[in-house]
Amino acid sequence: MEICSWNFPKVGNGPTESEDAFHYNTEANRFAICDGASDSIFSGQWASVLSENFVVKSPNLTDSEELKSFLDESREIWLNKVPWKALKWNVKNKAVRGAYSTFLGIQLNDNSSMDCFAVGDCCLFLNRGDSFESFPLKEPKEFGVHPGLIWSGYGNPLQNKEYDAKVKILTTNFDLSGVSDIIIATDAMSKFIMEQGISVLPEIKKNYESQSYFDELRSNGQMKNDDVSGVLISF
């Protein structure tokens, strides 16, 4: 298994300002990618916590109890990462409302099948030779402005308020026979892949480390100017 990954901020933003995050754990065969919502703050941190906690703790998200534990733990980690007492008035006023992020996690089962969990518009693509199969979105027109999101719950001073995330996770399972590559990506990248089709894969493999490649795509309008990130798994 060969893994390539990339995460570049939107054109005009600084190198640390991407609110996308991904993590993977090859021992557990788990990969996750999340896109922190820019309407909220500390959402990049929330995206990072969700993706990391998924690959490290290996929760079974189809089990409601494990899902709840996963969210509770993630929330606790996020709360501890934010320096609540040091926040300025304006940051504090906004941060109390919590952070939001999309989520996509996958679990490979001995490279023969894969379980997938998605909230929002991060997508995965399976290379079956002549075309991509995608999940959870199938067509570029499905990308909208209000994707499903996972909420962190409130921040300080409402951090102890009861937390009910009411997350609606889409789950599916794929047979991996005949699959040579898997890509998981945030929305701008996913829409681009859907629009370009399978023929874009060699280009991505060649350029995934090049910020200028993604900058040009976003500057010439081929890709939305957004944070762009993805993980490419090749067998």
Binding site: E17, G44, Q45, K88, N90, V91, K94, A95
Partner: peptide, 11 residues
Amino acid sequence: LINRCTKSEGI
């Protein structure tokens, strides 16, 4: 407006 422009690192 400040709220909209506020990010974790500032305005």
